[in-house]
Design a protein around this nucleic acid. Sequence first.
DNA 1: TATTGTTATACTCTATAACTATA
DNA 2: TATAGTTATAGAGTATAACAATA
Lengths: 145, 145
Amino acid sequence: MNSPKATVHSQLAPPLRLAIGRLARRLRQESVDNLTPSQRSILASLDRHGPLRMGELASIEKISAPSISGIVGRLEGRGLVSRETDPTDARSTLVRSTPEASSILNAVRQQRSAFLASRLETFTEAEVNTLKEATELLKRLATDQ
Amino acid sequence: MNSPKATVHSQLAPPLRLAIGRLARRLRQESVDNLTPSQRSILASLDRHGPLRMGELASIEKISAPSISGIVGRLEGRGLVSRETDPTDARSTLVRSTPEASSILNAVRQQRSAFLASRLETFTEAEVNTLKEATELLKRLATDQ
DNA sequence: TATTGTTATACTCTATAACTATA
DNA sequence: TATAGTTATAGAGTATAACAATA
């Protein structure tokens, strides 16, 4: 804890934390999709994993079963997901996202990436390379272990 | 748009965007303060700028005046802010955060920084240096212009 | 008359407790 | 009896519209 290395880490952590928070906030502002954060996150999970049961969604999203019920119900009402009884267990419901949902998600991602890309154009080649290396490191930072 | 440089930017933007989003989410998980995101953000604004009027808070937080009214009312009920009439304009209300609020904010920052610092200990010196350079670049990325 | 803030109302997200249907 | 999901209820955040107090 008192090694020179630990000091470097303690010094870097606060400004890095601030920078990450600010950039994440700025990126969230950069898209208008008429989805709430929960709706967007659930659609992204379905996009990533394919059809999921209500309980799996609750577990992935770390929110309660009744909350998932409500959000999925509203997404269904907007035609962004469909529900069907799991053929292997009639107690379970499979939630599937619709093509319209994928198209909304892709639009959001494109808007946010386009914002980043246009900001990156103001950076030097060396700076872009530093960020490229940092991207891998940030990914590792977010992963436990 | 078709220059080699633009291609580099378009290639970097999506993974960088993903990495930022994930790390920001991971950091948010790393603190338990019994504050909602809106409450935390309002207290952080007061911490940064000193006492603010309701309208200034609404403008900084980019939420409606009635929403600010409700949130500040609940923060006041918990003893985290106080309200006083602006001596220079009796229509306005000055909102001031209490020492207890600052102490909660500092605890959250310390928890999140401690998480980052402990993750950084698993990185090589060269990697830490890359992240140090990247921190400045991320700050610039989030800033318009 | 214009500005500052609050109240009324409505919708979404969130949780816990109670319930229904199926295994 | 245990599990998957929904319904009931309540509190917080969000907005727009209508209102009160002050400039």
